[in-house]
């Protein structure tokens, strides 16, 4: 799909989210709730008493962004299935060992999960949704995100390029 057309579509979905929910789109918020629920399964008392997750106890998953995350999974699946893009596997460049790619994906995830809590959102919830309102913090976040991405990308080049 033409990226600009996809962008307009995404922008309209974001506008609709603001008009209906009063809040923007988000993915990491749902992930954090899931993390809290899993933490609760492992250590209920500890999680309930914790300063960050504890505020969401006991109904960690009763949150609109959890349902949005579920929607993203469903929408992504339907769209990929319709386009014939359901390709199970570990995506990596030629010559990149699977273990290396798996390690980088996992470690990158840890950094992103952590940072999304610190910044109260990720690419969608903070950069895009807040940026569309021209909120200072969201725009700083977006600038920092791309700056750091470009700065460190060279170290991870090997997972994509031979």
């Amino acid at each position: 799909m033409n990226p600009y057309a996809a962008g307009v579509f995404l922008g309209l979905v974001l506008t609709a989210s603001y008009a209906v929910l009063g809040a923007g789109l988000g993915a990491s918020g749902g992930l954090a709730r899931l993390a809290a629920a899993l933490s609760h399964l492992a250590a209920p008392a500890r999680t309930q008493a914790s300063a960050y997750f504890g505020a969401w106890a006991p109904h960690y998953l009763s949150y609109y962004l959890v349902f949005m995350l579920l929607g993203i999974l469903v929408g992504g699946f339907l769209s990929a299935a319709a386009a014939g893009r359901l390709q199970p596997g570990l995506e990596r460049g030629p010559g990149c060992p699977a273990a290396k790619r798996a390690f980088l994906a996992l470690t990158g995830g840890v950094l992103v999960g952590f940072a999304s809590r610190l910044a109260q959102g990720c690419t969608s919830g903070q950069a895009l949704s807040g940026g569309a309102l021209l909120l200072t913090g969201s725009l700083i976040f977006m600038a920092a995100l791309f700056a750091a991405g470009f700065a460190v990308a060279r170290f991870f080049r090997g997972q994509w390029y031979a």
Binding site: G108, G109, L111, L118, C122, A148, A153
Partner: peptide, 17 residues
């Protein structure tokens, strides 16, 4: 948060959404 998330994005190849 933006700096760490950007680094994690470049490393992992994904963002949450």
């Amino acid at each position: 948060g933006g700096l760490i998330l950007g680094a994690g994005f470049a490393m992992g190849g994904w963002c949450p959404g």
